[in-house]
């Protein structure tokens, strides 16, 4: 794929995006065939995400939140229902570089420097060398890692490694950021800080963000929309539009509005359990 051709595809994607929601799911079902028989991972999932939203998916293990994210990324294919990303089939959107994906583990290659790791997707996508350098510099500054480009991953803390991983997902300028429990393996103090930084990053870049998490405070603090899910079969039990302002200092987490949203999320999670 030539960089020019794919740039045109990305432009086409951004044109179609203005027409409707960035991500739209209608009655999505996903059944895995396993040795113990079929398992319904997702049942009748319908959801619409507008441009620039920060959407968190929260629920217990096995509720399908990661699976749903993987469907958006075209790493899984729904068994039935309609799912579009930027108005396209998810696989077409993947090929048009519609999204950057941040996994739970940073997944940096130990044999590449931090800059080399961020450059990796750019090399694969065939960006010219000079532009690779410029983009690596820009995203390193964006995640506050300027000056660490020549370090190797083992020389960085877990939190810094995950920031580098986010930088890598941002390097090729996808307008959707998919994050699968990116801070799940970090301690609470580092996590708080990265949450705050992620909000800042989101405000600066305006990326539509889908964020999978186990943590209620994390979901409420970060999101403009919280999707509560429950397991067996994985389904959406509640969708909450957050009343919190976009500007969120850390101490907003002690405000009554915050606690009210957190309470509603908790209720949703509990309701999901009673149903089963």
């Amino acid at each position: 794929m030539s960089p020019d051709g794919s740039a045109q595809m990305a432009n086409a994607a951004s044109l179609s995006r203005t027409a409707g929601p960035v991500i739209e799911a209608q009655g999505v079902n996903l059944v895995f065939q396993t040795a113990d028989g079929p398992v319904q991972a997702l049942r009748d999932v319908s959801l619409s995400v507008a441009k620039g939203e920060f959407v968190s998916f929260i629920g217990p293990s096995g509720c399908g939140k990661t699976t749903l994210l993987r469907c958006v990324a075209a790493l899984e294919t729904p068994s039935s229902g309609r799912l579009t990303v930027n108005g396209m089939d998810p696989d077409a959107a993947r090929k048009a570089r519609a999204y950057g994906y941040v996994f739970q583990a940073a997944g940096l290659y130990p044999w590449r420097t931090i800059a080399g790791n961020i450059r990796l997707p750019l090399e694969i996508m065939g960006f010219p060398r000079a532009e690779q350098d410029a983009r690596v510099d820009r995203v390193l500054r964006l995640v506050d890692l300027a000056g660490f480009g020549r370090k190797y991953p083992w020389q960085l803390s877990g939190g810094m490694q995950q920031r580098a991983s986010i930088a890598r997902a941002l390097a090729f300028d996808a307008d959707i950021l998919l994050m699968d429990e990116p801070f799940g393996a970090l301690d609470e103090i580092v996590r708080d800080r990265l949450n705050e930084e992620l909000l800042g990053l989101w405000a600066r870049t305006g990326k539509t963000t889908l964020f999978v998490t186990h943590s209620i405070p994390e979901a409420v603090y970060l999101s403009t929309k919280i999707v509560v899910m429950s397991p067996r079969p994985g389904r959406i039990t509640d969708i909450i539009d957050s009343p919190l302002p976009r500007e969120r200092p850390l101490d907003i987490r002690e405000s009554p509005e915050f606690l009210a949203v957190a309470h509603r999320v908790r209720e949703g999670l509990r309701a999901g359990h009673i149903e089963v």
Partner: peptide
């Protein structure tokens, strides 16, 4: 996860071999 990551970047078999499998 590393193979999925390659897939999200739409990397082909050759890229995955050269940049991931061989160094690993």
């Amino acid at each position: 996860m590393q193979l999925d990551q390659m897939h999200t970047w739409n990397a082909g078999t050759g890229d995955t071999l050269r940049k991931l499998r061989l160094p690993a």
